[in-house]
């Protein structure tokens, strides 16, 4: 009985020692992998192909105003139509100076027909320069 118990203890200790060796090997592999990744990260050379250049250039163009974009999707067309009618150069026919301003504003309104923020700015500009009620 005692011999059996001792034998069981010896077996158990042997298995633990084997599993510890196995764990150590995998730990070493993981550390080596980590070292390789760090070395590669530190020695990384920037790509210099045209595709990457275009991507970098485009991504560096600045932030996109999504709030304005979403707002413009539904509300810009109404304001655009209103501004286009109210700023039409023919409405200021005798006054050549105002006609020129209206012409310029109409062009800007058409250019920014899907940008509500810009249209609001143009609306204020139209109010001031053309003395119209919007």
């Amino acid at each position: 009985m005692e011999n059996d118990t001792l034998q069981a203890m010896v077996d158990s200790l042997g298995q633990t020692a084997q599993s510890t060796t196995g764990t150590n090997i995998w730990m070493i592999v993981a550390i080596v992998e980590l070292v390789i990744i760090i070395v590669l990260l530190l020695t990384r050379k920037p790509t210099d192909n045209k595709r990457s250049d275009i991507k970098k250039q485009v991504l560096a163009e600045g932030d996109i105003d999504f709030s304005n974009l979403v707002n413009s999707s539904f509300n810009a067309s109404r304001l655009y139509k209103e501004l286009l009618v109210k700023c039409h150069p023919d409405r200021f026919a005798p006054d050549t100076e105002k006609m020129a301003i209206a012409n310029e504003l109409s062009a800007m309104v058409t250019k920014n027909k899907h940008d509500i923020k810009r249209l609001e700015e143009l609306k204020e500009e139209a109010k001031q320069k053309l003395n119209i009620n919007l």
Binding site: V58, L59, E61, G62, I64, L69, S72, S73, F74, A76, S77, K113, H114, D115
Partner: peptide, 16 residues
């Protein structure tokens, strides 16, 4: 079409 046109008119977004 209005939603699409608004997105497509934003050059920066389309390029991105």
């Amino acid at each position: 079409v209005n939603i699409g046109a608004t997105i497509l008119s934003n050059e920066i977004l389309v390029r991105r």
